[in-house]
Design a protein around this nucleic acid. Structure first.
Ligand code: SF4
Ligand code: SF4
Lengths: 132, 132
DNA sequence: ACTTATACGACCTCTAAGGTCGGATTAAAC
DNA sequence: GTTTAATCCGACCTTAGAGGTCGTATAAGT
C-alpha cells in the first residue's frame, strides 16, 4: 500500500497552482478547489495548515487568498509530507512508538536500513521538482 | 505515513525464524507466535496465506508446521508486500483505481516518477537481505 | 452595513487494519 | 479407532484514521 494521503495530494496540486503565479498574486481557496474539483472545505483547512507551517501566506477578507511564501526548491518532499501527515516511517519503532515486539523483534535492524533508503528518496526530491 | 502493515512485519519475522532452520525442518505457527509474542491466530492466517502464495510449505497434523519453500534471494520486497497488502503505490492512479481528479490533476506525472523511484528501492531488496 | 474571503473546531461516515472466535480437516501417536 | 495437535477457513468484532461536512467567528474591501 504505502499510499500518500488525499490531503497531501490536494496540497501538492494547490502549490502547483500557486507556483505558476507571480509573487504577491493571490488565489482564493475556493477558486483552486473549483478548478481541480477538490472538496472545498478540506482544501481550505489544508491551506490553513500550510499557512501555519509557513509554506504559504494568507490574506483575509474579500480579494484575499493564498500565495507561496517559501522557495519550493528549499523544501524536501519528506518535510512536506511530515508537515501534513506526521513522521514518515515504515514501522512504529522507527519513531518513538513502543511496540509489543520491541524486545523480541528480529527484523528491526534491516527494516531500519530500508527505511533510511526510502526516506532518502523523498529527501532528495524538492517540491519544486514535483511541480515540473 | 507510508507504514508497513503489522501483518507484513509478522510475516517477515516468521520467515526470518524459518530461514535459520535446515530445509525439511518444520516449525509450528504456535511456536513462532509464542517466541515473538505475536497474536497466534493472526500469524496462523498469515502463514496460510504465504502457503497459498507458495512462499512456505505446510505439513498438517501433529508434528506438522511450516518450512520455507522458495529461495528468499529470488523474492523482492515489492513482491512480498504486494502478496500480503496488495499493490504498492503512492496514489490511486498508479494502479487502476479511478480518481475524481483524473481529468484535472496536475501532479500525476511527477508523482508517477517518484512512485517508480520508490518502488525500485523495494524491488532492489530481496527477502534474503531483510533476514540479515 | 454588506459581502467575501480566511480561520477554526466540532462532527459525521466509511473503510481497513488488527485481532478474535468457533469450528472443520488432517494425520501422528496411543 | 479414539485422542490429540497441528493446519485450515470464514465469520465476526473493535478501533483508529482518512476523508469530508457544517456552523460560526473573524477580518477586510466596497
Ligand atoms: S520492533 Fe519490530 S515489530 Fe516492532 S515496530 Fe519495530 S520492526 Fe516492527
Ligand atoms: S490523478 Fe492526481 S489526484 Fe488522482 S490519484 Fe493520481 S495523482 Fe492523485
Amino acid at each position: 500500500m504505502l499510499k500518500l494521503s488525499r490531503k497531501t495530494e490536494y496540497a501538492l496540486m494547490a502549490l502547483r497552482h500557486l507556483y505558476g503565479k507571480t509573487t504577491e498574486q493571490l488565489t482564493s481557496s475556493k477558486e483552486i478547489a473549483a478548478t481541480y474539483r477538490i472538496p472545498g472545505e478540506l482544501l481550505a483547512k489544508t491551506l490553513q495548515q500550510l499557512a501555519r507551517e509557513g509554506i504559504v501566506e494568507t490574506v483575509q477578507g474579500p480579494l484575499g487568498g493564498y500565495r507561496l511564501k517559501v522557495n519550493l526548491e528549499k523544501v524536501s518532499l519528506t518535510d512536506f509530507i511530515e508537515l501534513l501527515e506526521g513522521p514518515v516511517a515504515l514501522t512504529d519503532c522507527s519513531i518513538d512508538k513502543n511496540c509489543d515486539q520491541l524486545g523480541t523483534c528480529t527484523i528491526r535492524t534491516p527494516i531500519h536500513r530500508i527505511n533510511d533508503t526510502m526516506k532518502n528518496v523523498f529527501n532528495n526530491v524538492t517540491l519544486a521538482e514535483v511541480m515540473q
